[in-house]
């Protein structure tokens, strides 16, 4: 079984699986406890606009996805404060507008767009060294920001109105939290693609939340859970020669079902 690790692309794939699990475990915990799963779905789909831009400009689409997902995070954060637009509506708009922009850019790009499919559904087997470097940097950024702003994040996730009374700039902190979601989305695109990202953010934390009510443990256990299931999914997709993103998502979902029933 260890034989598959002799291939360099498999080594990179496993490293990528471990790296994305860190982002998923930490940010996914907030996504689940603040109930912003579908909002995170909007951010990930909007990132597709950036991927299209990357094709159009001939740049690494992962890099051009960053500003797109950040901008969509900011827009949703700004709408959050307006009582006359529901967040639900904003999610629908941003979700589809991002995708539409991506499709337009790809239309405008001359010639055939190779591996477009991999940005939609992921292809962990084609992770490059530079992708891994981007993942490491984003992981470090995420850990650093969460460490520095843990009290503020906890406060706005638990009781947003009270956080204002405490003197926390809750709108800015909320936007910062959504930006973390945006960064995690970027980390995850290579692995599962924009369409399946949301499963990796939500499921590990949803599994472990049944077993602990301590936030730090929740983050740590979600990371470990994510590492286990993404590696398992990767292994299975290699053995059966099936799409890695899809298998990882299905393995996670199966893990959730099993954990729910044995609980």
């Amino acid at each position: 079984m260890m034989g598959i690790l002799q291939y360099e692309f498999m080594q990179r794939a496993f490293i990528a699986a471990l790296l994305v699990s860190v982002a998923c475990g930490i940010v996914g915990t907030y996504v689940v406890i603040k109930r912003i799963v579908s909002l995170s779905g909007a951010i990930s789909h909007a990132a597709f606009g950036g991927i299209g831009l990357g094709y159009f400009l001939g740049l690494n689409p992962i890099l051009t996805a960053i500003p797109f997902s950040i901008v969509s995070a900011f827009s949703i954060g700004a709408i959050h404060e307006k009582i006359n637009i529901s967040e639900d509506t904003a999610i629908g708009i941003i979700w589809s507008v991002g995708m539409a922009i991506g499709i337009l850019f790809i239309n405008l790009t001359p010639g055939y767009s190779p591996d477009l499919f991999s940005y939609l559904f992921g292809s962990i087997l084609t992770v490059s060294n530079s992708d891994i470097i981007i993942m490491v940097i984003l992981d470090i950024l995420i850990i650093g920001i969460v460490y520095l702003f843990q009290r503020e994040f906890l406060s706005i996730a638990f009781d947003e109105e009270y956080s204002k009374v405490l003197g926390i700039h809750s709108e800015l902190i909320y936007i910062l939290l959504l930006s973390l979601v945006a960064l995690s989305v970027v980390v995850l695109i290579k692995v599962v693609g924009v369409i399946l990202v949301i499963a990796l953010l939500a499921i590990p934390a949803a599994i472990t939340k049944q077993y602990t009510s301590d936030l730090k443990k929740l983050m740590f256990m979600s990371t470990i859970t994510g590492m286990f299931f993404t590696s398992l999914g990767l292994l299975l997709s290699y053995i059966f020669n099936l799409s890695s993103g899809a298998i990882i998502v299905l393995v996670l979902a199966a893990g959730f079902l099993i954990s729910y029933y044995i609980k």
């Binding site: 406890i33 109930r35 996730a157 638990f158 009781d159 109105e161 939340k209 936030l215 929740l218």
Partner: peptide
Amino acid sequence: SFYHDFPI
């Protein structure tokens, strides 16, 4: 108003 299953 908070989610009653909030881990705190």
